[in-house]
Write a protein that binds this DNA or RNA. Structure first.
Length: 512
DNA sequence: GGACGGTGAAACTTCAGGTTGCCTC
DNA sequence: GAAGTTTCACCGTCC
């Protein structure tokens, strides 16, 4: 055990002796799990309430992953870890457990300080540095305060403790100077970040909030961004560049041509196209929207498979950070590339171009999605792609949104044959099922597991469900679900429930 | 002698999180 | 930059 961990554990044990609670902040998900685990091995099993909670934690997914087992084991001792890799339900369980006092100590990444309001008697700051693109650097003072701010529970404690750990006297001085005496860093406007600017510019035009170039400039002159940078000339140049792009991408139209000779560019009028309005409504970054449009147009000249769409949505800013293609995985990714070479909607950039790495990452991300709709289990995904359930849910959510957007754009661009295809991929992604389970997944209370069980028992569509007798269905699905499914095909074998017409088929989230 | 297990040093590997976007029978 | 993990050499024990 690392030395710093030993002192962290001591502090945590001391907190327990005082019959108080603590949050330990660390800088990686792995560390959070490790600290919680190390601590839990030093403790005895707790109350039956903790056992009960541990069971809930373990069965938050269809099938427990190693992560679930690890957390469940800690919770049994009143310890937990908390980071974005946990599924929403597990995070809630941990937070709730802490509030009710079942969980005494949480080892967490900054997630816990960001959203949730979870005060503790003691906050232990194990790490005050974090790896970023600039190297291993101190966390912002603002964030340090945010985390320490969790110390002290307003209605229970008269005071709280936030403890940082230094290994030398010099380090102690540095921590005090930087985080306690030091000023929080200034806040800078993010409007100058291109994706943000693009999105806002388009939405301003689409909502008719501004129309002429003069109005646009007047608007941005009033923003915090302009106030901070004061360089309106540079700002104007950036905005003009953006406007040109939006026009080139056919999200806005202008009458700029009319003014070419007159020199009255200020009066140039901008108006969003139908597609531009939709892009703004979907809250898409126009660059991503253009990427989707380009892919949709290209789709007619390619042999399209689900992987094509998965790679398309993977290569967007929204999907970042992408799964990282490791050096030792290059061979495997190359194999996939060979297989899907002619089927991708984006040409492979040259190995020497800067976007090549992102391209490989997007392929790896698509491989993850592909395995998910190939009915691979979460535990497999965790081991293969190093993506935890909470993270994979977040990615799937974004993919769903982008595919929905793509579907909408395809409709606007009159690519009708694509609609069904995109919808199918969307449903498959939502439930994580192979193509053949699509008819079954439409039933309420039937997810990937039950659908697969039905399929294995030769019940493969609505007709089969109708034909199957209740006993068989009950054996496969259990009594309640079997009855529900039968009801959904219009065979009510129990007293008719009010409000539901006979013969009505419940089609949730998916229409043929 | 060889299989096995425990130990510890050295060599690798990897590193937080994210809000809101849509639609909904 | 450092924590965490994996690998590997080394040693002792047991059969």
């Amino acid at each position: 055990m690392a030395e710093s961990n030993a002192s962290v554990i001591d502090l945590a044990l001391d907190t327990l002796r005082k019959e108080k609670q603590a949050i330990i902040f660390v800088n990686t998900k792995r560390s959070a799990e490790k600290v919680a685990e190390d601590l839990s091995t030093k403790l005895k099993e707790l109350s039956p309430v903790a056992q009960e909670m541990s069971e809930k934690v373990l069965h938050s997914l269809q099938k427990p992953t190693v992560q679930c087992e690890r957390l469940a084991k800690c919770v049994r001792k009143g310890i937990a870890f908390h980071h974005a890799g946990l599924v929403h339900h597990q995070r809630e369980l941990v937070e709730e457990g802490f509030r009710s006092g079942v969980v005494k100590i949480i080892a967490a990444t900054p997630t816990l300080a960001m959203g949730v309001d979870l005060p503790a008697f003691r906050v232990i700051m194990r790490d005050v540095k974090r790896y970023t693109h600039q190297g291993y650097t101190f966390i912002p003072v603002l964030e340090y305060h945010q985390m320490c701010g969790r110390a002290g529970r307003p209605n229970y404690d008269t005071y709280g403790e936030a403890i940082s750990i230094a290994s030398t006297e010099d380090e102690r001085e540095e921590l005090i100077d930087r985080f306690i005496k030091g000023k929080p860093e200034a806040i800078y406007s993010k409007l100058a970040v291109e994706p943000v600017l693009r999105t806002h510019l388009l939405s301003l035009i689409a909502s008719n909030f501004v129309n002429t170039k003069k109005q646009i400039m007047d608007f941005f002159e009033q923003t915090f961004w302009a106030f901070q940078y004061k360089d309106m000339h540079r700002l104007e140049m950036i905005i003009c560049k953006m406007l040109d792009l939006l026009e080139e991408w056919e999200f806005v139209v202008s009458n700029a041509e009319d003014f070419k000779s007159a020199g009255e560019l200020e009066d140039t009028k901008y108006r969003a196209t139908f597609m531009g309005k939709r892009v703004a409504e979907l809250y898409l970054d126009p660059l991503s929207a253009f990427h989707l449009v380009t892919c949709i147009r290209k789709s007619t000249s390619r042999q399209i498979v689900p992987f094509s769409w998965l790679q398309m949505v993977s290569n967007t800013l929204e999907m970042r950070p992408l799964l990282k293609a490791r050096t030792r995985e290059y061979d495997q990714i190359q194999q996939v590339l060979v297989e899907y070479d002619s089927k991708l909607l984006q040409d492979e950039p040259s190995m020497f171009e800067p976007e090549y790495e992102d391209f490989l990452n997007s392929v790896k991300t698509a491989m993850f999605f592909h395995d998910w709709i190939g009915e691979k289990e979460e535990d497999y995904l965790l081991k293969t792609f190093d993506i935890r359930p909470g993270e994979s849910r977040a990615k799937l959510d974004i993919a769903d949104w982008l595919l929905y957007s793509a579907e909408d754009l395809a409709r606007i661009l009159q690519f009708q044959p694509l609609l069904k295809e995109l919808e199918r991929v969307r449903v498959r992604l939502k439930y994580g099922v192979k193509e053949e389970l699509l008819p079954l997944i439409r039933f309420k209370h039937v997810g990937r597991v039950r659908a697969r069980m039905l399929f294995r028992n030769n019940i493969r569509d609505v007709g089969d469900v109708k034909k199957a007798d209740l006993a068989t269905l009950t054996q496969i699905l259990g009594k309640q679900t079997a009855l529900s499914v039968k009801e959904q095909v219009g065979q009510e074998l129990e007293p008719v429930k009010p409000g539901k017409r006979k013969g009505q088929i419940a089609l949730h989230d998916y229409r043929e």
